[in-house]
Amino acid sequence: LDNLGKIFLTTIALVLLSLLRSTKGNNARAALRDDIEASALLDPLEIEDLRFANENLLTKSVWDEILKEFREVGRERVTYGTFMNVVLRVLRRIHGEGATIQCGHLMDRVVIAEMDRVGREIDASEKDGESCDATKEIELPLSFLLAALSLALYSTVADRIDALYNVMVLIQGFNNDAGESTTAPLSIDPEPETLRKELPSVSLVQVEQMIQHLQNTCQLVPDAQIVETNANVPYQTYRVGDGTELTKRAREAMA
């Protein structure tokens, strides 16, 4: 009873401290979310524009044709030029001469940013490098380019997931090579349920890479990309997680 005042004041101080800590943590998270939004290459409205502009052009069936064409090409990494040649060849075969990706500059923006990033990495690894001004020649993973193309794919979310899964199956086919189990059914199946049972599984690494590609092509919401750091004193701090971390967290939640 002699220390009642002290106990009371200590309790108040602790409550205030925890409130302050929580506010600082929330502010840090909100600031990071704003950063992610501000630095995004595309905003959600642009993505919507890209998708609607290609409403009649890039549907799931056309996408399947594109994948078939890339299966013929048989390369896991291609330049953007080669990639677009193949895509346009399929589009023109289906929709006639002159068909092209509408609002393609939005897709270009995402791909060029990736080429810059890869170019910088190459420059950094080859110190006295012939600085990559030949960005056009940089080869990017086919899975990344297809993830970028999926920005323009006009379809339901379920179909889009199918489409991306087929991309991973295709790439896995290249890896396994020898041509055998590559022949994953590339959809246009009237009974998707049957198809799903037939689809082979893909490696976890591929899934992580695909999530990373989706992140790099602005297809994940900012909130989902935020992960907690180990620093929680004096308040919790946050950072942007990569594909591996986001996949791990999702799998933990599923478990």
Partner: peptide, 23 residues
Amino acid sequence: SVVLEDFYAILKSRSVCAWGECY
């Protein structure tokens, strides 16, 4: 390894929330 259903669940989980659509 991951099958299509798992991939679907991962993309639609709150941790990934692709295209803003999550459970």
